[in-house]
Design a protein around this nucleic acid. Structure first.
Lengths: 217, 217
DNA sequence: GGGCGAGGGAGTGTATACGAGAATGGTGGC
DNA sequence: GCCACCATTCTCGTATACACTCCCTCGCCC
């Protein structure tokens, strides 16, 4: 339910590690990932690596060509738009439920993330922002109490973090101010307000993203 | 890019096979799936089976407990509702794009699916309906031209087929009549109409599903 | 000199083998 | 008769080894 605290297997770790590295840009889009290299990098055999790569393929981060290898996917601008639009309809739905179902522990984690986010922005550690951003939205998804919604948002959120990380992170200050307001609404249990704020939040993020891509418009 | 016609590996085949079997009810919710049994069933080693199970876990069809095994997930009524609600917002978005981007080849496949669906309904082969239903919506997702949307809808659609298949399939006649109308709108390239029809379609499906669960309401 | 085909190297795909952990049954004690 | 503890057994988790495919290069022929 919350964080799987159980004994994690190597593949699960590998999935997290490789995904993080893809999002952080360690592995560039289009780059080929060889199983041997990854196995050596994480100190395990090829078998767990293969399983991890299959999961990442299912999640849409890499593409596997039979007998050739796996390649980091290249996100087109259109796909980035789709991700943002998709999130813009799913997240408000999610926020409304989170306002009703969130636990105090989850509120605590959100508060911590908001603090971490502010610190990162203030101190100029912009490379950490996409990850924190992603986690903020993931916790909201978790707080909705719906496993299905949570899984969807989780994947979306990670990919969006990737999209943003490919470029630079701007709009960071405004974004975390908005996160703070959302947290307040969730804390108060105000479903309508939480849903509305999240809708605006996503809309602004989308607009900012578009402006970055096409500054002339 | 439509159907991967290339040389499929065993894991990919296994994913399809196991998922189909889960949806068809061959493997009941909560049932334990042992790797050996699946390996024997499909005539391969445990390695491809493991990879397939990891993918299915990522897709949310099974749950894996370390050193214990994988179990078919049990869909709660709330999760079924979430799936339907999720689809109700995503599909219309998808249909609007499909009306603009669909190719003649895709229209042909949709037409074929509508025919197959009608036949199945008329001849009482209701066990085939969820699968055809699922594929109809998957082709629409593909026709939208967005890989991201396609992947999302694909997963959603398969899970919804599962939800429906757990009980019986009713509303089949109306459903396929509506599919026919949607096809007409797509064929005409009318985005608004396609989007609206698909919204109604999902709404009715949701209502029917709820009525089946709580006949008294 | 250019095009074509065979051979070698690299890397994936799969099977087999062995070690680790958990569920289960039996046995002893209370 | 019931409960706790231990050994057995079943299954998963991982490593190692081998077969198959693809790609690139070198040599041959036109």
């Amino acid at each position: 339910m919350a964080g799987d605290k159980g004994p994690r297997r190597a593949p699960q770790e590998a999935v997290r590690a490789v995904r993080e590295d893809i999002i952080r840009g360690v592995f560039a889009p289009g780059e080929r990932l060889t199983e041997d290299a990854l196995a050596a990098r994480y100190g395990v055999s090829r078998v767990p690596v293969r399983e991890a790569l299959r999961v990442l393929e299912a999640e849409g981060f890499v593409e596997a060509k039979p007998y050739v290898g796996v390649f980091v996917k290249e996100l087109s601008e259109a796909e980035a738009e789709d991700l943002l639009e998709l999130r813009s309809v799913i997240e408000p739905m999610c926020a409304a439920r989170a306002a009703r179902n969130r636990t105090p522990e989850q509120l605590g984690r959100l508060k911590e993330l908001v603090n971490l986010g502010w610190d990162a922005v203030r101190e100029g550690r912009l490379e950490e922002v996409p990850r924190l951003n992603s986690r903020f939205h993931e916790v909201i998804a978790e707080a909705s109490g719906s496993e299905v919604l949570g899984q969807m948002i989780r994947q979306l959120s990670q990919k969006i973090a990737w999209v943003y990380a490919v470029g630079l992170t701007l709009r960071a200050e405004d974004s975390w101010r908005e996160h703070e307001e959302i947290l307040a609404a969730l804390s108060a249990g105000d479903a309508d307000r939480a849903s509305g704020l999240l809708g605006q939040h996503i809309l602004r993020a989308t607009t900012a993203y578009r402006r970055r891509l096409r500054p002339e418009s």
